[in-house]
């Protein structure tokens, strides 16, 4: 049941991606109104898929990597839709929708069916820690997209190429402000994600910090974002440099999310002994 729903979700996300991309090049009003609606419909079906999974399995679908992907995509889309309420950012949709599509596709393409949850994970810490960490992460993914759009436009303006595609971007100032807003939201969420993880580890395994690769990489990214936030507030670190740093931070997170666990087996990679 939840797999069927997930397939429908992926299809809708694919449709939304196409519609966002078409909008960027053709700028039809109808399409600009339609794309977020398709995307929202996909999100509703996705929510249903996650709900059904929870009812059937009795735990949120985040224990396995492919399940986590789907959950992460769901958070990402939720974040985008929230931004879309205030900013008309079809261009960001054109980045987020394909990402969401690929992640939901991956969530059922590499086998389905849930394994039995290891005993160490049968705890309320799991959903709390994973949700917070993913939430922070999803916000940074959105910031990554916003930064990318900023840099694209900045590059066009510096080179004095003003094409019609650019005209449908928000202004640089608006993008920079949004980037800042996302940082302000994402940073505390990430901090909480790390703290809950540490407390969980402390309670279950007796040590709060075990220098796991995942912990180290999170620590590095946390420091990076802390520096960025500090720079923004005190030294006027904004615009191009801020956008670049945002992208670097997220690239580290993403890289680890995709490959880190298989390179460095650890608790996060599924070894709980």
């Amino acid at each position: 049941m939840d797999v069927t729903l997930l397939k429908v979700t992926a299809l809708l996300y694919l449709l939304a991606s196409a519609s966002f991309v078409v909008y960027i090049f053709l700028a039809r009003d109808l399409i600009s109104r339609l794309s977020p609606i398709i995307f929202l419909t996909g999100f509703v079906v996705h929510t249903a898929a996650l709900g059904v999974h929870f009812m059937q399995a009795g735990y949120p679908g985040i224990a396995q990597f492919r399940e986590a992907l789907s959950f992460y995509a769901w958070l990402l889309v939720a974040g985008y839709l929230l931004i879309q309420l205030k900013y008309r950012l079809a261009i960001l949709g054109a980045i987020i929708a394909p990402l969401a599509f690929l992640m939901t596709l991956a969530a059922f393409a590499f086998g389905t069916g849930g394994g039995e949850l290891p005993p160490a994970l049968k705890t309320y810490w799991l959903p709390v820690h994973v949700t917070l960490a993913f939430l922070g992460n999803a916000v940074f993914a959105l910031a990554f997209g916003v930064s990318l759009i900023y840099l694209l436009q900045e590059n066009y303006l510096k080179r004095k190429k003003v094409t019609s595609v650019i005209k449908r971007f928000p202004s640089l100032e608006a993008l920079d402000k949004l980037n800042y807003l996302l940082l302000v939201w994402g940073f505390p969420l990430m901090t909480l994600g790390i703290l809950t993880g540490s407390m969980w580890a402390g309670i279950h395994w007796g040590n709060y910090w075990s220098w796991e690769p995942r912990e180290i990489s999170s620590g590095i990214v946390w420091l990076l974002y802390a520096a960025l936030l500090h720079g923004r507030i005190t030294a006027g670190l904004r615009g191009k440099k801020a956008a670049l740093l945002t992208m670097v931070g997220f690239a580290v997170v993403l890289g680890y999310f995709l490959w880190g666990d298989s390179l460095f087996p650890s608790r996060h990679g599924g070894r709980f002994e």
Partner: peptide, 13 residues
């Protein structure tokens, strides 16, 4: 008018 258009690309308002 190009100058105004550009100003609106750089500044939000």
């Amino acid at each position: 008018s190009v100058a105004v258009e550009l100003a609106k690309r750089i500044f939000d308002r």
